[in-house]
Amino acid sequence: MTALRIYMAQRISAMIMVPLVFMHLGMIIYAVQGGLSAEEILGRTRGSIFWACFYGLFVTAVSVHGAAGIRVIVTEMVSLRKGTADLLTYGIFLLLFVMGARAVVAVTMP
């Protein structure tokens, strides 16, 4: 991975996340203000292709963004070979993606 590709991946994932973060926060406020129970929330999200795509995209963008950011911080603090840094980046991406995907599946699968 080149520094420029990582830079672009981080910026593009950030651009994707901006509206998603606001929608996510808005939904939290709506759910809390409306006094929705966990069952009522899951009743709306389970089986919804929209929420599966919404949070699927969110988790993917977070995984890319987080992996790129941590790679930059680690390579600035510790001297790593490029191959090792690439492995670390893919590893962090996979970890974040799997954790996030599990949550998305739990909330949106019927």
Partner: peptide, 9 residues
């Protein structure tokens, strides 16, 4: 400027 030593740092 686009290389690993370039502006993206």
């Amino acid at each position: 400027l686009a290389s690993d030593a370039g502006c993206s740092n």
